[in-house]
Every structure is written in structure tokens, then in C-alpha cells.
Design a protein around this nucleic acid. Structure first.
Length: 431
RNA sequence: UCCUCAGUAGCUCAGCGGUAGAGCAACCGGCUGUUAACCGGUAGGCCGUAGGUUCAAAUCCUACCUGGGGAGCCA
């Protein structure tokens, strides 16, 4: 007899095993009780028949409350009626801790209530499935980057100034000076790419925007690869290969979780089937105007615009060559058309919005100096960044992928808050 | 910051001028194959807060508070 995990239960058919976990639900029918037990790796039904267990264990089981922790010993039995294929014929049971009245029932709950109880909400099958897929997505991203020769370089979280000078940052005190929570590690990755060639950072980023939509988090995770000697076209090819690798990994490892999430996997299979579509900003504006959107050349896309563009395709679509004026200062202009830049946003299908933003970076010192002035950025704060163009400057490109948006798209979630264990939302930092 | 919707039992909601309701959860009882089990019973309420209108307000009006969805901004 040994303690086993529910996910491995198939290996112990007809064996006597012990499971340790929590009571998810209990049903009884007089002389028979069904205990649904979860252990973090899965859910299994344990069956207790009154005539097969001691009177003490029978009474004990009858009084176990939802989410009590327990230890159950019994025989693993194959059963067609079980969604798992197996159930446990209980011989004995022990309660480790009897739970108080549990606030989260198996019925529906409102968002506010669930977010207040996120620490308990995480125990439910849907949330467990999402966290398992999140883990696979992160691992697949890392595996792919490793196989392509990237080195993980951790970027600082406390920074002296805005990286791009656009969004609102969280300000904090730094021994009498001001410091800000990072909104991007990219500039540091450019320095690292000149040292190691191919690098990436992966960590939390912070935006103090008062955004309150299903596509926003105040704190979210971003992975930012940066590559020396890689141009705009190669950059997009890398993104496509990486996204496909991750989608394939999730489809292979999580069919049961995706089914539980009611994800239409045919839509994910379609992503792998053909090359990602590409559309120029010019063509996008033309299309949107033809559809009656109120947008001019030079405007940035709003959320409805992005959705309309994404809906043209059943896979992700690159929108490239944006006007320089609406993009970050460091993006390299298209040589024969300096009013637009070598940048591309990757829009996920099904209305999930932008999941990747990437560009080739300016490698010319004088142009970068001019852009810093045009954007009214303090040059002294960027001297180290300018040094990268003084000492062996090379063409280089990179991109940033928003982890939670990527997860939301793959899992088919309706809100980013389910894609991260403890979401930080506008006016909400508990638990 | 703006637009919009909503706050009634632990949870999800109904009630929309005239005595506070249901399902689930809890508790008690019944049932040997249940899948959010089912059946019977018990208990559970400052109707978000403060004003106002009215013989009478959960219900109508005003303000505020809290939350949801969206815009802007972004990944």
C-alpha cells in the first residue's frame, strides 16, 4: 500500500492505495456514500458502502464538511460510470482537519464574491485547469527559447524612469529619490542582447492605468525576447514559430483541461494549419474606413478596430508598418518610408486583442538622439541606452508577449482575471 | 476621468407602492449508484448608506458608497 496521486491512479488498478486530499463534495443515498476527493492533480469519486466499513468510519464520513482535508484508503476500481475511468472503494477514512462552513458552494457565484475569495476559488476544477495550462504555456515558451539559443536575463523591477514615457507608472521612494515599478524590461534586454546575442526576460510588469476592462490587469506577466542581428521580417517569423509551438504543446498535453474549459479546440488547431496573415497599417485603415469605422491614417486602433481586423482571419494576424508618431521612440523607420516603422502587433483571433508587440530597434545613434528629443525624453537618463549605439551597434529586434492575454486566448477565457492566480485589478488588491 | 448596469438570507436571484420570498449552502430526518443527486422538515433579513415624497417605501425621487461591463490607454 502506498500514497498515490489521483493523476496516476490508472497505474494502481485493483491495488490498495491511500489518497490524501480535500473533500470536494459528498452525496449519500442511505447505505452508500460518494465522496468526491481532490488532491490538486485530479478529482476522484470514493465510494463507501455501509456494510464494508466500520461503524465509526461510516459516521465520520457522514459528518465531513466540504473542503475538509482527509486521508482515504481503499481499492482502485475501474468503472465505466466514472468520468476519470476509476473510483476508489473505501476501506477506511481519516479526517485531517474538519473544515468550517465553506463559503464557495458548487452553485454559481458572482464575480465580486469570487474575487474576494480568490484564495479559495483557486481550488475549483476550472481554476485548477487554467493554472495547469498556465504552467504548460510558461514552460513551452521557455523550452522554445532555450532550443533557439536564448539566455534568460532578469530585468530589474525597480527602475529610475519610464522606459517608453507613455503609460502611467507606479511611483515609489528609493532612498530619497523616486523610483518606478517596471512597465517593460526591453531596454535592458537590448543591452543584454549586445552581450549575449539572444536573450529574454520574463517577469511581472506594472501599469497604473485606470483601466477597468476584461483585457487589463494592473500587474501582469510579460516575456520579452531580444535578438542581435535579427531584422523585422525574421522577428515576425520567430514570433509565429513560438506561438505555434506553445499552442501545439497545450493541445497535446491538456485535452481534458481544454474540454473542462469548453474550449473549441478546432479554433486552436486552425492556428497551426497555415502561416499567420500579415496586413499593413495602411491596408488596415483602408479596410476599417470601408466598414464605416471613424478612423483616419495616423490614428491608433481602438478595441473595436482591433476586433474587426482580427475577425478577418481564423488565426492570428500581424499588423505592421505603423506610423512612427503613434509608436515608441526606439522603433526603426522603414528605410524608403520614414513616416512608418518596422513594427508589428500580433492580434489574436476571436477578439482577444493584441498579444504581441514587436519591432526592429533604431541602431543609428543620431536618429535615436533625435527621437529622444522629439519625444521630450531626458537624454541623460538614456545615456547608457545610447552607448549601445556607440560601441558596436548592430541591427536588432525584439518583442513582448503578454502572458495573461496569451493564456486567455488559448483557454478561451472571458476575462484576464482568471488567467493569473491573484489578479491585481483597479481598486482591488485583496487577497 | 467619462458612459452604462447593479446592490434584498452565507451564495444566486425573484418581489418594483400595501405583512420579506424561492433555490442552493447549513442543521434534523429518509433513501444501496449518486454525478451541481433527490425527497421531507428547521433555522436564517438594518432590502448598500443618508435624506426626501406618501396614510404607507425593498419598491418612487436625490446624493453618496461599493461593485460589474465598456471607452480612453495598453500587453
Amino acid at each position: 500500500m502506498s500514497t498515490v496521486l489521483i493523476k496516476d491512479i490508472g497505474q494502481y488498478k485493483d491495488d490498495k492505495v491511500t489518497l490524501k486530499g480535500w473533500l470536494y463534495n459528498r452525496r449519500s443515498s442511505g447505505k452508500i456514500q460518494f465522496l468526491i476527493i481532490r488532491d490538486g492533480t485530479g478529482f476522484i469519486q470514493a465510494v463507501m458502502v455501509q456494510s464494508e466499513v466500520s461503524a465509526q468510519d461510516w459516521e465520520l464520513a457522514a459528518g465531513i464538511t466540504q473542503e475538509s482535508s482527509l486521508e482515504v484508503t481503499g481499492t482502485v476500481r475501474e468503472d465505466k460510470r466514472s468520468p476519470l475511468g476509476y473510483e476508489l472503494a473505501v476501506e477506511s477514512i481519516a479526517v485531517i482537519h474538519q473544515a468550517e462552513d465553506y463559503p464557495i458552494s458548487l452553485k454559481e457565484h458572482g464575480v465580486d464574491f469570487l474575487l474576494d475569495h480568490r484564495h479559495l476559488w483557486l481550488r475549483t476544477p476550472r481554476q485548477v485547469a487554467i493554472m495547469h495550462i498556465r504552467n504548460t504555456i510558461v514552460k513551452a515558451l521557455r523550452d522554445w527559447l532555450d532550443s533557439e539559443g536564448f539566455t534568460l536575463i532578469d530585468a530589474p523591477i525597480m527602475t529610475p524612469a519610464a522606459c517608453e514615457g507613455t503609460t502611467t507608472l507606479f511611483e515609489t521612494e528609493y532612498f530619497g529619490d523616486k523610483a518606478y515599478l517596471s512597465q517593460s524590461g526591453q531596454l535592458y534586454m537590448e543591452a543584454a542582447a549586445m552581450a549575449l546575442g539572444r536573450v529574454y526576460c520574463f517577469g511581472p510588469t506594472f501599469r497604473a492605468e485606470k483601466s477597468k476592462t476584461r483585457r487589463h490587469l494592473i500587474e501582469f506577466w510579460m516575456m520579452e525576447p531580444e535578438m542581435a542581428f535579427v531584422d523585422h521580417e525574421e522577428n515576425m517569423a520567430m514570433q509565429e514559430a513560438m506561438v505555434k509551438y506553445v499552442v501545439k504543446a497545450v493541445l497535446e498535453k491538456h485535452p481534458a483541461d481544454l474540454k473542462l474549459l469548453e474550449r473549441d479546440t478546432a479554433k486552436l488547431e486552425a492556428v497551426l494549419a497555415r502561416p499567420f496573415a500579415k496586413m499593413s497599417y495602411d491596408a488596415a485603415i483602408e479596410y476599417l474606413q470601408s466598414q464605416g469605422h471613424e478612423i483616419q491614417w495616423g490614428d491608433d486602433f481602438g478595441a473595436p478596430d482591433e476586433t474587426a481586423l482580427a475577425n478577418l482571419h481564423d488565426g492570428p494576424v500581424f499588423i505592421e508598418h505603423f506610423p512612427a508618431a503613434i509608436k515608441a521612440f526606439y522603433m526603426k523607420p522603414v528605410p524608403e518610408r520614414p513616416e512608418v516603422v518596422l513594427a508589428a502587433d500580433l492580434l489574436a483571433p476571436e477578439g482577444y486583442g493584441e498579444i504581441i508587440g514587436g519591432s526592429q530597434r533604431i541602431d543609428d545613434l543620431n536618429l535615436l538622439l533625435r527621437r529622444i528629443q522629439e519625444h521630450k525624453l531626458p537624454q541623460e537618463a538614456f545615456e547608457w541606452y545610447l552607448d549601445l549605439r556607440r560601441y558596436g551597434s548592430v541591427p536588432h529586434s525584439g518583442f513582448g508577449i503578454g502572458l495573461e492575454r496569451f493564456i486567455s486566448w488559448i483557454c478561451g477565457l472571458s476575462h484576464l482575471r482568471e488567467a493569473i492566480p491573484f489578479p491585481r485589478l483597479l481598486n482591488r488588491i485583496y487577497p
